[in-house]
């Protein structure tokens, strides 16, 4: 079998166009795929579900706009779930950019979907704190040393929800949405393993594989990438059918995922076929491909 040279010399911009099309076309057509939660995602859902109504939940937005398309759907799903269950949610971030992500939820989602929820009573924004793991350590050792007011400067004592929050262990669970360091790893190392507070959450698909060794001993559950978010959304819809008509970002974005994954698998297969059955029809004559790569890099 011989594969023409043009396959080996394909311009990378053609691949770029294919990827662009593979993302855009499903976005326009909006196919819907049924999903079901895997045990690692279901365990987060069950934990949030089993907490008595009114429990204090600490939700850390440890990400910025660069990873928001993956983690925003998780944030929305978690906020919808915790608010529906009647938990009291404290928003926080270890990323300066995370503050903007919190504001998207508090300014756009909560007033529209939960107009009855009041700031200071049902949710509060504790803002950003620097110091990476050191910040978590300070919170565990003496919560009020690091956080004595919300993001607007209002003392915690003046907010009904946080008036009697003196220690990190006053929170029933810690949820973190992680894009890197600091994130779930630091929450496990500095809070979960030391103070014994159950830690769980979501990570970008890049971070998620590295967090698997913590599950299930140190990490209650993990949503890995958009697929993890989609699984959580499906668990939410199954339990609360009222959300069936709500916009589920991760579920909608699974269309482009499906098409691009198939495209990339096909590209890998084609690349390997071209490598093994190049012009000579024999494996190993791949130097042309390598030269094409180098030429592309120079371009």
């Amino acid at each position: 079998m011989r594969i023409p040279d043009s396959i080996l010399h394909i311009d990378r911009r053609i691949i770029f166009l294919l990827i662009g099309a593979a993302v855009c076309i499903p976005l326009i057509l909006q196919p819907r795929f049924q999903d079901s939660p895997t045990p690692i995602v279901q365990s987060i859902f069950d934990t949030v579900e089993r907490l008595p109504s009114g429990s204090r939940v600490f939700l850390s937005f440890d990400y910025g706009p660069d990873t928001a398309p993956e983690l925003d759907p998780m944030a929305k799903a978690l906020v919808r779930h915790t608010m529906t269950r009647g938990h009291e949610v404290s928003f926080f971030t270890l990323f300066p950019e995370g503050l903007g992500q919190i504001k998207k939820i508090t300014d756009n989602l909560l007033p529209v979907e939960f107009p009855e929820k009041a700031y200071g009573r049902d949710f509060v924004n504790l803002g950003y704190k620097a110091g990476l793991g050191g910040a978590i350590n300070t919170m565990v050792v003496n919560f009020r040393t690091l956080i004595n007011a919300d993001a607007e400067g209002t003392p915690l004592d003046d907010l009904p929800m946080t008036a009697d929050v003196d220690e990190m262990v006053d929170y029933a669970i810690i949820l973190s949405l992680t894009a890197g360091d600091p994130g779930l790893k630091e929450w496990i190392q500095f809070a979960g393993d030391i103070a014994g507070i159950p830690v769980m959450g979501g990570g970008t698909a890049v971070v998620a594989p590295e967090l698997y060794p913590y599950y299930p001993q140190q990490l209650v559950g993990l949503m890995g990438g958009l697929k993890g978010a989609s699984e959580y959304e499906s668990a939410l819809v199954d339990r609360y059918p009222a959300y069936r008509n709500a916009t589920m970002d991760a579920t909608m974005r699974m269309g482009p995922q499906v098409v691009t994954h198939v495209l990339i698998v096909l590209l890998i297969l084609l690349g390997n076929l071209a490598y093994f059955f190049g012009r000579s029809g024999r494996p190993g004559r791949n130097d042309r491909t390598d030269r094409a790569d180098q030429a592309d890099r120079r371009r």
């Binding site: 398309p69 698909a205 890049v206 890995g224 974005r253």
Partner: peptide, 26 residues
């Protein structure tokens, strides 16, 4: 196997980001 899994997940992550941007352009 670990790196293969990590690669698969990385592809997933990058496509998600591009999807977000295309939605914004939309």
């Amino acid at each position: 196997v670990t790196f293969g899994a990590a690669f698969g997940y990385t592809v997933m992550a990058r496509i998600s980001l591009l999807t977000g941007r295309m939605e914004a352009l939309g």
